[in-house]
Design a protein around this nucleic acid. Structure first.
Lengths: 208, 208, 208, 208
DNA sequence: TATGAATGAGGCTTCATTCAT
DNA sequence: CATGAATGAAGCCTCATTCAT
């Protein structure tokens, strides 16, 4: 879809170019997390990055591309943290527990990332076409569903619609984080335990 | 801050004033649901209401107040539908099931309301202070938690943090609706069953 | 193609609306004539009109619509002046002479209109689709060609391609005006005579 | 105003300097012809030349100078083609005919040059002062007028204002080319004949 | 010589809000 | 009560130009 990256017309990017892009993405992440999507103007972002507004236009096709990059980086980072932990486990039950635990754990130490991610996923609206995050989110749900299905085949989990439950779990985790964001007094570790426990009971085979 | 002239600030509002406000709120709801929060300008809303933009400013303090009213009405309507159904049940278990069922049921026949509610709750950002919806959502969660607690006392539910589970349930319902919105082929009734079942397993006392 | 005029959403326009549009069109005409198309920004136009930039946006869909209106008005005015004079004549020869004479005469007393017209016809480039002036110009040329053809049928004019000659005549008139614009010392009346004479000799039947 | 550093201002320019300038001028010509004046940004031109934007700034004072050079080269090339052909003829009548014919012929096989020339002559607007093409165009007209005058003295042409007719002829040729550009189906050779014929009749002495 | 990078001016639009009628 | 009209702030983007390397 995208025909040219920035600086327009070049394919390769120098080291300094990469650094600037990273810096701007970082600034954008913080800005979105702090003032919210709608107030995260290029002016704001530029100011926080200590650069001029047009530098952003120079390194990115436009605001849309910048925000997509921000989100993409957040997805990557999150998954890079979760994947080894989840697949370090062997049983489906342990994988699900680790999924929830690691996601909560990651975001609990990356508050800004979480806020930015939620804001962007929720608000981003490209000029044409549909949100590019739908796919990422869809893939994540599919991955989760796959684990659930395996657990059912192994007799670990009872019978339910894996797809529906995957969505429920995803939402529950996001909800827990949302609560924690809204209320600092919440102990996320306790919450995590409760959530893991809740899910465990909900999906585990009766015999288990 | 609030000017004491004009409708807001008055104690008594004429019938026509009430009617206009209702009409505008209705139009705003539809607009937000249809074109999304960010594209729901006063101009758009006014056009759909068949009135002039300034009428809105006349009847509402500003866009912020209007959207707050929209959300407030949606909360009220939803709760007005759910309350008798939930409390028509006696056991905590049945109440929870009815809570989930009735919420899904209400929104499934009020698609516009659901869309508008999500958009507003998600995007609304007052110029000063924090979101006024936090309270409403908080109250709803508290209500749900109360039922859960009762179920625990009655021995219906096992031991868990009622507050945390209340949030999880709320999120799960919203998630299910979101899925249904995104994918028309989903059968919401089936989904409702799965969700109720999921929650049932998660919270019901082992002995149950 | 255009779905709504300004103020957006209304069909009828009040008197004051009409007046403002006329005022803005007038200011735009002058601005384009004076500083040239490329420097005729909305800011410039607004300043000359003594109004705020956004007033233009309020009354017109955008810069494109404004300039189209400017051009449309110029075409209309020009033709309103020429038509009765041209068709006040009966013979094709006289009609052609009057065509040239009246066009020169009109623009010689509407310097600004001429400049604006040339600038817009030359520079205007709509965001999508092709120039809407092509048609107007085409029609004018066709009209001229029709007269030429009639003259040939009546034996007044010799044999030539009417379409090609129509273009030549049109260009010649524009060229003459361009000269006059560039050099104030030129006497346009003399020039007009020369031009009429030139064309006369070029097209008149040998026997004539 | 002009800074004395760097290439411009130097008396001697290296071979590589000359080559670069030529390359840039060529790219600019093509760009202007293809995408039109207003979209012919330095970025576009640089991209087509396969060089970086700043190279242009290095070799030319600015965009203005570049475009002036482009136009100057086009004028030169055109005249280099026309001159021997026109003055290969002896009689004024033949010279005029050859003038028209060779100009049409040159541009018909240099479509890009014609497009670029028209775009630049039409759109170019220096930051200060007036268009530098006025002079070139003026000289061409003067040259043409000189031939016309000679034709009158020789009794070949009838009495008319040579200056005015020179302009008319120039415009007519440009108009014919414009038509041809706009409509590919036009046979330029036929058109050329019609034009030559038209002019012939217009200026030739009655006795001729 | 060449260039990647950065800049700031300026352009068009959208929008909530205000005000006189 | 209602509204047409006007406004100014703010947003994003494009572009010629400059500068250090």
């Amino acid at each position: 879809m995208r025909t040219e990256s920035s600086p327009r017309g070049r394919k390769r990017s120098s080291f300094i170019e990469q650094a600037r892009r990273a810096q701007i993405i970082e600034a954008a992440t913080e800005t979105v997390a702090e003032v919210g999507y709608s107030r995260a103007s290029l002016a704001e972002i530029a100011q926080r990055a200590g650069i001029s507004k047009s530098v952003i236009s120079y390194h990115f096709e436009g605001k849309d591309e910048l925000l997509e990059q921000v989100a993409a980086r957040l997805f990557e980072e999150t998954w890079a943290y979760m994947e080894p932990r989840v697949y370090g486990e062997t049983s489906a039950g342990a994988q699900i527990r680790e999924w929830v635990r690691s996601q909560l754990s990651f975001f609990s130490s990356h508050r800004v990332s979480f806020l930015a991610m939620v804001e962007i996923v929720t608000h981003y609206q490209p000029k044409e076409g549909s949100s590019p995050f739908a796919q990422a989110i869809e893939e994540e749900a599919a991955e989760l569903a796959r684990i659930l299905r395996k657990g059912q085949q192994d007799g670990e989990f009872r019978d339910f619609d894996p797809r529906a439950v995957a969505v429920i779990i995803g939402q529950a985790v996001e909800g827990a984080l949302g609560q924690w964001i809204a209320d600092d007094t919440i102990d996320l570790d306790t919450h995590a335990l409760a959530l893991v426990d809740f899910i465990d009971h909900a999906i585990r085979s009766e015999r288990g």
